[in-house]
Design a protein around this nucleic acid. Structure first.
Length: 198
DNA sequence: AATTAGATGTTCT
DNA sequence: GAACATCTAATTA
């Protein structure tokens, strides 16, 4: 069962981010379906969060998707090389998003291996924001602004995860965000090996 | 094991 | 022109 619109449209991004841990992320590209369990995420808020691209009402071509309704995909290019996949949350006009940073492959790992040009299945296959998109075949041109209730990319419920199994810590790569860099808005599965960084 | 350099496009100064 | 929600391979210890 796909997660419904109401899941994404809730007000508290941090809560949505935490609940995305353990969910299953699907992509279907040219008929090939690949699936991974979400093991690591970060929350970004459009208000009072200097780390967010759309902080303080900043509206550009790139950030426009985040102002749309919850449940859309925000994919952007980072450092000119890596594509990053985010889930847009909150209602229209409020630019919040959750960055998916790592997944554990559960279906189509052979396809992921060939997309990543690897021959071994380990955490380097899909743990890290720039490489999980490679593994799942997510790109800016194909997936930015797509609806996660559609048939190309979507999220379904998975195993139940309790709060004690989730670690909350600071986000990565956002030192420029001053005091907001200290927010414990990164979440990951405590016992999982599929984590970009402990 | 830890650090460094290089790749490279979009956005903002 | 600088900074950036990063990854990899090469170098140093």
């Amino acid at each position: 069962m796909k997660l419904n619109r109401g899941f994404y449209e809730r007000e508290d991004v941090v809560q949505v981010a935490k609940e995305l841990i353990g969910k299953r992320l699907f992509t279907r590209i040219d008929g090939d379906i690949t699936v991974g369990i979400i093991t690591e995420v970060e929350a970004y808020s459009g208000r009072n969060d200097k780390a967010c691209h759309a902080n303080d009402g900043l509206r550009t071509k790139r950030t426009e998707v985040m102002y749309g309704q919850g449940g859309m995909a925000y994919v952007y290019l980072c450092y000119g090389i890596h594509q990053m996949f985010n889930v847009v949350t909150n209602k229209e006009g409020l630019a919040d998003a959750v960055l998916v940073r790592a997944i554990q492959p559960i279906k189509g790992s052979n396809i992921m291996l060939s997309r990543r040009k690897k021959d071994k299945i380990d955490y380097k296959l899909s743990s890290g924001p720039g490489i999980l998109t490679q593994a799942l075949g997510i790109t800016v041109v194909d997936h930015n602004t797509l609806d996660l209730l559609g048939d190309n990319i979507w999220i379904e419920a998975g195993e139940k995860v309790s709060d004690e199994d989730i670690v909350a810590t600071t986000r990565i790569g956002i030192d420029y965000a001053e005091e907001d860099a200290l927010k414990p808005w990164r979440f990951y599965l405590k016992e999982s090996k599929w984590i970009s960084k402990k």
